[in-house]
Structure formats: structure tokens, C-alpha cells
Design a protein around this nucleic acid. Structure first.
Lengths: 184, 184
DNA sequence: CATGTGAGTGACTATACACTCACCATCTGT
DNA sequence: ACAGATGGTGAGTGTATAGTCACTCACATG
């Protein structure tokens, strides 16, 4: 039961998380109703509460899934780097991240999670994801601390650019902060 | 009437905005009820709706006020810089910003605004504030575009650090991204 | 005194939402 | 054939919340 085959309930749970990524990314933690997620997943709202004990835990699970995907993308990027130098590794990881967040959902989810971080469980999940991301960037790239810090900072800048819509039809002044940033 | 004296309604409006900064910063746009803001300001909820036509516009007004304070702080920092070189100017402005957001309210308000940016009016206010901040940093420092971009990116990193609570009793790994960052 | 005006409120409405519960349906092992 | 586990739902409940409205009170002015 714990080896290869998932029960249908676990399959459902994954489908609900997939819907939750989309819906939470669109409207945030408080702005998204469980009913909307259930409808998107094609099941009743009551069944969502059978699969997850609370909206809060559904959000946390969704956020953890988001970070799993981010970590996998960084890993992929690192593996595909043409060159083992720290700068090249970080550049490759950045490119893989930019590609991953192409549909904005995973990015928006992180933005909304930051806004909901005062909910203890959500804040803890955010810290855990940031920790894993940072440490992976450090260990795979072998870059100095300053370069890793820069990597994270420019990731946040990328979030800001997308949130403000500066990547779509950017005004003239926007090139000041969007120049060189790889965004979707 | 338009010169020096404010009517009591305008005074009230300012008091409500001050309360709104605190309350919205604490619980976000959707997480804060107008009743809570009214109570904090010591007036009835009905009167808040006489002073502001909607919760949305109250939030936008509050956010604009936040950016006014940010711009004033940057201006102050620039004016106090011991040295006119671009690097020194940006450093001084960064220090003034770090000091301004010492109580976290103005920082958290920006984070929550990013999460609520899909509301058109809020997104527009955010873009406007970012534009003004970026252009001010550029024009006062005379720094190159890359340095201004870096200035904004590290500002966002600062937000992330505060949101995740990494500035209070930081775990060991946190120094990777908090090193050198001036936060409250 | 009469009258008008701006400040301020209590009580209400309509709705939306997280969460619950009693219940049905379908499969599975014996 | 049947007992029980597992998948799934319709119909609620209680509460919170944005926004409204009819109203009161203080005060200024003619």
C-alpha cells in the first residue's frame, strides 16, 4: 500500500492540490473559497474537507508542493549547466526557475503565501521552502554567500516585476528594473 | 478653505488612514475588516464609509500614504549622504529606508498590496509607487541602471527577510541571505 | 427662535464562507 | 449473498462582513 500504487483518495488529493495551485495563485489565501477549488477540481466542497482537514492545511500542502517543484527545477537547471563554475550554475538555475514560473501560478502562490505568513503554519512552510531553496542554490553552485544572496534577491525582484505586470507591455521607465531579468 | 486649515472631516480621514496602515499591515487587505479599522480609530464603522466610499479606496489611499512616506525617507537619506558618489547615495537611501520600516507596518503593507495587486486600483497604485521609488532612486543617486535595479532587488529581499521572521532569532542558515542587509 | 448643515451612530440587510452531518453508492473479500 | 470499508454528496449551520439608511446631536447664522 505504501510502495507504488496510490489509492484513489491519494490520486484525488493530488488533483485537488493541482486545482488549489491554480485557484490560490489567482486570488490568494483568503480570496479563494474552498468551494471554488472544489468546483475547479470537479468534486463537491464537502469531499475536499474529507481529503484535507482544513483550508489552512490545504494551503500549506499546496505551498509545499510548489516548493517541491521549485527545488526540482533548480536541480534540473543545475544538472543542465554547460559549465561547473558557480556563476554558470546559478545562471542555469535561474533560467530553469524562470521557465518553471512561466505560467505565473507558482510565483503568485509564493507572493500570496508571503502575505499570509502571519498564519503560523503558513509562515513555517514558507521558511522551510526558503531554507531548502537557499541551501540547494548554495550547495549545487558552490558559489560564495554573496552570490547566493544575490540569486535570491533577484528572484524576489522577478516576483515584483510579474506582480506589477511590468513584464507585459512595460512602460518606458520599467526597463530600469526589468533589464536582464529572465521572466516568462 | 484650501490653504491651511483642515476641516474636522479631513482630520478624521487622516486618522483613519493612520489606523488603516496599522490594521491592514497586520492582517492584509481581505483579512482586515472595516469594522476593525473603525474601532482602532475610535469611530463607528458607518462613519468610515462616509469618509471613504469603499474599502478598496481606503486601502488605495493607505497605500499611497505609505509610498509618500517611503519617498520622503529616501529623499531624507539622500540629503544626508556624506558623499555624492552614486554608491554612497544609494547606501544612504537604503539606510533611511531600513530606518523607516523599523516598525514593519509600511513594509507589511507593501507585501499585502502585492498580494492584492490583482484588484485593478491596487495594482495601479503599486505600479505608481514603484515607479516613483525607482525614478527617485535613479535621479537622486545618478547611479547606473544596474545599481538601481540592485537597490530595488535588495529592498525586496529585505521584505522577504522580515516576512519570514528571519531577522528575529535567525536560524544558522539564514545568515546566507541576511548578511549585510540592514533591517530593523 | 427657527432653520440649516456637517459630524456621527445604531441597527439593519444581503451575502458569502468554512465547516458539518446524515446519507447514498460502489466495490471487495468471504 | 452480504458485511463492511471506501468514495462521494446535498443540504444545511453559524458567523463574519461590506455596505446602507434613517436618525440624532451640536452648533452656527439670520
Amino acid at each position: 500500500m505504501n510502495t507504488t500504487k496510490l489509492s484513489t483518495a491519494d490520486v484525488r488529493r493530488e488533483a485537488v492540490v493541482a486545482s488549489a495551485v491554480t485557484m490560490f495563485a489567482g486570488s490568494g489565501y483568503l480570496g479563494t473559497s474552498v468551494a471554488a477549488i472544489a468546483e475547479h477540481a470537479g468534486i463537491s466542497q464537502a469531499y475536499v474537507f474529507k481529503l484535507f482537514p482544513s483550508k489552512e492545511l490545504l494551503f500549506v500542502t499546496t505551498l509545499e508542493h510548489c516548493f517541491d517543484l521549485v527545488l526540482a527545477a533548480l536541480e534540473r537547471g543545475a544538472a543542465a549547466s554547460p559549465d561547473q563554475s558557480p556563476d554558470a550554475m546559478l545562471y542555469a538555475m535561474g533560467g530553469a526557475y524562470a521557465e518553471l514560473i512561466g505560467d505565473r501560478s507558482l510565483l503568485m502562490l509564493q507572493v500570496h503565501a508571503q502575505s499570509a505568513a502571519s498564519v503560523p503554519e503558513i509562515g513555517a512552510a514558507l521558511r522551510k521552502g526558503l531554507r531548502a531553496t537557499t541551501l540547494l542554490a548554495k550547495s549545487r553552485s558552490n558559489a560564495c554567500d554573496e552570490a547566493v544572496q544575490r540569486f535570491i534577491a533577484y528572484g524576489q525582484l522577478c516576483h515584483l516585476i510579474v506582480v506589477t505586470g511590468l513584464d507585459h507591455n512595460p512602460p518606458d521607465w520599467a526597463s530600469l528594473i526589468t533589464a536582464g531579468i529572465r521572466h516568462p
